[in-house]
Design a protein around this nucleic acid. Sequence first.
DNA 1: TGATTTAGGGAATGATCTTTTCCTAAATAA
DNA 2: TTATTTAGGAAAAGATCATTCCCTAAATCA
Lengths: 204, 204
Amino acid sequence: MVQPLHQVGRPRGRPREFDVNEALDKAIKVFREQGYNATSVEDLTGAMGLASGSIYKAFKDKRAVFLAALDRYMLLRNEQIASVARAARTARERLRAVLGFYVESAKGVEGRRGCMVVGSAVELAIADREVAARITAALSRNEALLADLIRQGQADRSISAKIDPDETARVMVCFTQGLRVVGRAGRAPPDTSAAVDIAMRLLA
Amino acid sequence: MVQPLHQVGRPRGRPREFDVNEALDKAIKVFREQGYNATSVEDLTGAMGLASGSIYKAFKDKRAVFLAALDRYMLLRNEQIASVARAARTARERLRAVLGFYVESAKGVEGRRGCMVVGSAVELAIADREVAARITAALSRNEALLADLIRQGQADRSISAKIDPDETARVMVCFTQGLRVVGRAGRAPPDTSAAVDIAMRLLA
DNA sequence: TGATTTAGGGAATGATCTTTTCCTAAATAA
DNA sequence: TTATTTAGGAAAAGATCATTCCCTAAATCA
């Protein structure tokens, strides 16, 4: 079939006046702070600077806004973590940098704002299959990243060959997710490097 | 002033037909599974076997039911943990037993049902001062218990004197709370003793 | 026994929340 | 230029929810 000649990327009607990703960034802020159920569509219209009609033009319903926000949150966070890991030289230093990033994320205003993965896991993973699938994927991705860094460390001799990378990574994921819980309550470890030093003991 | 002669413990009107603690146990189950905002008063009437009027006779409002359920949840849980700790001989074994109890709590149906402290911390700690106060108290109690066990272990030589009890306990609390997050998603460590072995490495 | 007090339960109320509708605006297609 | 398509926005509709009300029941007090 021959496609009609469209100027690429110019859809038909009135063009959208707002940037979807910018709007989602504002939705992420609200969902992180309040969670899904406590966030009303009115909260979203306020934060996103859109009328409810406009939100429902762009998204099927409130849940679709949430899922899109969650996907974007995970995307941005994975980029941050990858960037933090890239900055260090040895695998052991990369691991230390990643753990330090988690501790920093749990502190202060950022920590109180909360993690959308932890929030979704706790609030929705039981009730919503699609959220559950995303949380499962996110947790196993985190676990795989940590296990991979441990294996790299074992290869470059910066981490003991005796430890089990997968089991150790599992425990480290608990530590990182738990950081977000205590951070939400304003009780993250005040001394980042002390906490990381202790967590690094898991490696031997 | 002279008090009138009441038969002790017999209040004036029609006596309550249900046991408040039994009703709260049923409310705890619902709140653990669904959280606060997703639980309707209808959910509570169904689970507690009471009409809404009866619930509002016994509690000021839905929030008061939640706070009472949270208090009872924390009470029962603290008793369980204290009992688990008492059962072991050396401080190191007590610590191992407590960590094992946390891992077991995060697995299977119990893990999916979730922890009311973690759920409340994530869903409500920012929005509700009284919930926040309870969560802060619960977390610092857990931290103090673990730090105390570490100090006991240092006294009886079963734990290295070199580690900092408070900082180490802080990291362990993150591990235990994180367990409940991954348990909620059905991703608790499958091998309890392996996970505990690794977590115990934090002690040296 | 009769008055009073409190509980049980279900219907009614009032508030809130999500979603739809409808009208206007701004773009493309013919 | 006109028809068509999609977006923006506010108000209306429809659904759900927390709370109150009211009537009946079961106890104590005088």
